[in-house]
């Protein structure tokens, strides 16, 4: 609050000319009664009373995610339901937070329906506490195997529970012809 007396303007000249010197006048009788001010305040609150409430009742209604929202990672499958990841390690390399680790393994005979490439990730872990959801792994992946298209990563009680393995990351199998996901995998 500025004092009543205007400050001497010798030391500093205002360049923009937008400076205003506010003068505090003593209140007149009507203002000192406060009743008009109270009525004005009541008017404001009652206007808000009838306003539309912007709150979203969360568990019942959810707000739509943005198209380029980056949520929880999912390891994708191809059209035959095989895992696309070939454990090349580019995602782990590109990750600025060093949240991704993996162990590669060779595909055995009879596993052709499970893994698309000859090399696959037997362990694939993302530490969700380290991850910053920047999406660089998505960009680095040459096999289009990882996408950050899931929902928010939920809260948990223990740090170890935030290290998501393949059980949580690999997307469930689905039949491309029916486009209906099933939860068998």
């Amino acid at each position: 609050m500025l004092p009543n007396k205007p400050i001497k303007e010798t030391a500093m000249q205002s360049l923009s000319n937008r400076k205003k010197i506010i003068e505090q006048k003593p209140m007149n009788f009507w203002e000192r009664m406060y009743l008009p001010a109270i009525a004005k305040g009541l008017g404001i609150t009652i206007r808000h009373f009838f306003k539309k409430i912007p709150t979203v009742k969360y568990p019942e209604e959810t707000r739509p995610y943005s198209k380029n929202f980056r949520g929880q990672h999912s390891l994708k499958r191809d059209e035959q339901g095989r895992e696309r990841c070939t454990a090349c390690g580019l995602c782990a390399l590109s990750c600025p937070a060093e949240a991704i680790t993996m162990t590669a393994a060779e595909r055995k005979k009879g596993e052709e329906m499970l893994y698309r490439e000859e090399k696959y990730a037997s362990v694939y872990e993302i530490n969700m506490l380290r991850c910053i959801f920047c999406g660089l792994c998505e960009e680095a992946c040459p096999k289009e195997a990882i996408y950050l298209d899931g929902p928010h990563v939920t809260a948990d009680y223990l740090r170890k529970d935030f290290i998501y393995g393949k059980d949580k990351l690999v997307e469930p199998t689905f039949d491309i012809t029916k486009l209906i996901q099933d939860k068998t995998s």
């Binding site: 609150t45 009652i46 808000h48 009373f49 306003k51 409430i53 912007p54 709150t55 009742k57």
Partner: peptide
Amino acid sequence: KIAGFMQDRHGPN
């Protein structure tokens, strides 16, 4: 409830 409505929210529901 009234507090909620006056502050543009739902109040206990």
